[in-house]
Design a protein around this nucleic acid. Structure first.
Lengths: 232, 232
DNA sequence: CGTGGCTTTGAATTACATCAAACCTTGTGG
DNA sequence: CCACAAGGTTTGATGTAATTCAAAGCCACG
């Protein structure tokens, strides 16, 4: 039931009020996907778009010899599937168990006529993603391994931090869950798994972070990490 | 006069027909900018959006120590200035002399109500840019210097090639103008100027390209270059 | 417990960067 | 009209951050 959706206010659905939401309700379908399962692949027809209810997924592109670039991770509340040519230009795979809302693209886009604010919202989302993509280009093209890892950890904290994380006050409440493995992080940052591991070890030795276990990282010195991330 | 605009059919303006175009006409202003002049800078209020009539501009982001990442070049017909937070997240500088149409953002966006297809078009543009950004992430994160240069030259050919260039038939009609300098190319591809120069020399020695002069490159073997670009 | 799949650490290699100098072009003033 | 100054480009020698190859640790699960 969309009207009672627990993450409604964090997604594009929030632009519609209760009775308008019925139109979304009419075309949506909940889907559940287990870890490592593909949602769709590069080249597939982009028949559906999605909204992440819970879990984490990775978007990536491949070169013929298997080199992989992860272009983004999507988290709870994120919109997924804006595609240009009618086919997807990247593949999507679940990092954790994921549940999502699936909308037939054609039907959703038909609603744009009746609810222009839906389309405005989508334009806003696309615009934000574009800004994020430009930040990532700066990271991939010009940042060092330490700067890449620092940037990544801070952005991960923004999305995965347990309640209590406050971006302004620099208060980190406990370790951040790191759902993806070292290989995924490497392919997201344009590095190798080994370099990711080594660089995390160095950040740990410097006292900037703690690593209670491979899938949890504690940001001990947010301010220091931010300086590194921004290249100071 | 918008209705008589020589590049009308290649821009977002094409979604409006003659009388609708008057509304654009009412808010547009032509601007001319000389080479090396800034259009706007990272952090500036995004009060205007632009349409390139002629010339080439570069978009870039900087790190505090001066490292630069060029996130894109824009050419004739390209739309410029989609920004998220109300401020620009990148700087824009003219590579050549440039003339463009300037639209006050607020006024243009007001037209979305009356002409929803304007907004659809903008969403389409944002979507295409997002796809291009993902391709560029793959390039920056995972391609070698040769692959980067091959990709760049082919994309440049698509935008700068003299009439007669046919993407399918692989017919290259004469040398491609290369308006940007080696340093710009380097900052776009995440390399140094020297590596760009060396790599071009190697492509030349291999017979894939000819370099009549620093600002013109002839793609002698498009098929070979494409294979390199795609990582085969 | 043992086995398989991550992750970490170590040693050797390499693609690209850095530092440095020579080599054009192009424009300018004598 | 030529010399030469300035800015960009190319080429060379050397350095290094990150990769590659390899092995050892560390869990988690049956």
């Amino acid at each position: 039931m969309c009207a009672a959706c627990e993450i409604r206010e964090f997604t594009f659905c929030s632009v519609l009020h209760d009775e308008e939401l019925d139109h979304l309700q009419a075309i949506v379908r909940r889907v559940r996907i287990t870890s490592r399962q593909m949602l769709f692949q590069e080249g597939d027809d982009a028949d559906n778009v999605f909204n992440i209810l819970s879990g984490v997924m990775k978007l990536y592109k491949l070169l013929p010899d298997g080199r992989r670039q992860i272009t983004g991770f999507v988290y709870q509340g994120d919109f997924l599937g804006i595609a240009s040519a009618g086919t997807h230009s990247y593949s999507v795979e679940a990092v954790t168990e994921v549940s999502l809302c699936r909308f037939p693209r054609a039907k959703l886009y038909q609603l744009f006529d009746r609810f222009p604010k839906l389309q405005s919202r989508l334009l806003g989302i696309a615009t934000d993603e574009l800004t994020a993509a430009q930040d990532q280009m700066l990271l991939l093209g010009r940042k060092t391994a330490s700067e890449k890892l620092a940037s990544f950890l801070l952005s991960l904290a923004r999305r995965m931090a347990p309640a209590g994380f406050d971006d302004d006050e620099e208060v980190m409440a406990g370790p951040i869950p790191v759902p993806m493995n070292r290989s995924d992080i490497a392919d997201y940052l344009g590095l190798t798994m080994e370099t990711v591991s080594r660089t995390l070890s160095r950040l740990k030795k410097a006292g900037h972070i703690a690593i209670p276990n491979a899938h949890h990282i504690d940001i001990a010195q947010p301010e220091a990490l931010r300086d590194i991330a921004e290249g100071f």
